[in-house]
């Protein structure tokens, strides 16, 4: 059973296919990432460090930017990502 889905080699996130517990190590397709917090199924985990204002890349495309520095293994969602154009939230 695959735990995460890597969608493009350019991505700095992966999509979790099941709930991932804090401290859980994911070793898959030659990569290793340790979750630093709980990440729900269907949500994103950072597979590289992402600096504040840097693009969050999914499918090899920019889906928004980090609103804070995001370490490897973190839950990447509305609390630390904002869309570039249209968004439901304000910084």
């Amino acid at each position: 059973m695959r735990k995460v889905l890597f969608l493009s080699p350019l991505d700095n996130i992966a999509v979790c296919l099941s709930d991932i517990a804090a401290g859980e190590m994911i070793s898959q397709e030659g990569r290793e990432v340790t979750a630093i917090e709980h990440i729900p199924r269907g949500h994103k985990i950072s597979i590289r460090g992402i600096l504040k204002s840097e693009g969050v890349i999914k499918y090899g495309e920019r889906m928004g930017h980090a609103t804070t520095d995001i370490p490897v293994g973190a839950h990447v969602h509305t609390h630390n990502v904002l869309g570039d154009r249209l968004s439901t939230e304000q910084v």
């Binding site: 999914k58 499918y59 495309e61 509305t78 570039d84 249209l86 968004s87």
Partner: peptide, 27 residues
């Protein structure tokens, strides 16, 4: 519809931005 997307259900499901949702459809 700007304020309505992604919807609450989308966000619960893990989609964070409108771009992310649109990219998924356009894929």
């Amino acid at each position: 519809i700007r304020g309505a997307q992604p919807s609450r259900g989308n966000i619960e499901g893990g989609l964070s931005t409108l771009e992310e949702k649109s990219l998924g459809a356009a894929k």
